[in-house]
Design a protein around this nucleic acid. Structure first.
Lengths: 167, 167
DNA sequence: TATTGTTATACTCTATAACTATA
DNA sequence: TATAGTTATAGAGTATAACAATA
């Protein structure tokens, strides 16, 4: 497949599978576009790397955080990972149903649910970590250490949009 | 398993809404994590900026590409934007149902469906472009021109994962 | 046989709103 | 009143598999 991904030129285009040249018409001047494409590519690589384990990026992030903070409140995890309460519910419901997480009422504050990784969860998470490490290595191999630091720093700055006022 | 992969500080954490400090336990050393968070933040900003127009990032990208390439085959758009045929169907079905796109059988190759933006679609896309421009400006204001070029270049490299062999 | 589009199906993430129970 | 969690509901993106029409 011939790929002609000229970016900066005024009439950037790709040679599609059909042989037609498509005009991006400035779409590829949008940072959001590149971010979405990059995220898609990395996500698909992640899925391929962890396929049989059936833990998505988000689910892994939750398991990971709960393991690192045993007994943490459900909402605190959601807040730390930038997820809505309701979104968090869906995630935790599934992980609990699979026996990977335990949800117990907090004795200090009965409104809260404290999360713990189960023994089954520990095992699956350990296996997932190995796959993730391989996936990460493949991704990071695209960059020099300096580029990696730069990229991470720039991505962190994008995250700061979340805190900004939208008045 | 001892994990000491914390990127910035040995015990990186955030103060959650509750006042508890959460340990990321190395999660934030994963590039995929930062990418996902950044994409989430930008996506939410995009949604807020275009709320009443009801065109998502993906839908806008499709409309944008069709406008720039009138009569292009449905599959060619999908390929250029990195979407599955079935995924593309869902997108185009919705846009067609809203009267924003027209889908006609190609005379040159009857297997293909050629896409066109309707008059209604043109209007909505024009309004969307204005909102997107404002959104983009807000996002890009986080960076210097040099940083922007660097970020785009690094994101492009991530996209190249897609072409790699996963044998 | 290969390609393009289609349909059916399924799963995940996301969010809003209304509700319960606790504080 | 405010907070933590819950439930119901909905929309959107993603993908696999099987299929029809066409090349």
């Amino acid at each position: 497949m011939t790929r002609q991904v000229t970016s900066s030129s005024p009439r950037a285009g790709v040679v599609a599978a059909t042989g037609e040249t498509l005009d991006f018409a400035g779409l590829d001047s949008l940072l959001g576009y590149h971010l979405r494409r990059a995220q898609g590519a990395v996500h698909r690589d992640y899925l391929a790397a962890t396929a049989e384990l059936k833990l998505t990026q988000k689910q892994t992030a939750v398991m990971w955080m709960v393991q690192g903070n045993p007994g943490v409140a459900q909402g605190a995890i959601g807040a730390a990972l930038g997820m809505d309460r309701a979104t968090m519910m869906v995630l935790v419901d599934r992980l609990e149903a699979r026996g990977l997480l335990r949800r117990t009422r907090s004795r200090a504050d009965a409104r809260r649910r404290e999360l713990q990784v189960t023994a089954t969860g520990e095992q699956l998470l350990a296996r997932t970590r190995q796959r993730v490490a391989r996936h990460e290595a493949r991704v990071k191999a695209l960059f020099t250490p300096q580029e990696l630091r730069k990229l991470e720093s720039l991505l962190r700055r994008l995250q700061s949009l979340e805190q900004a006022d939208h008045a």
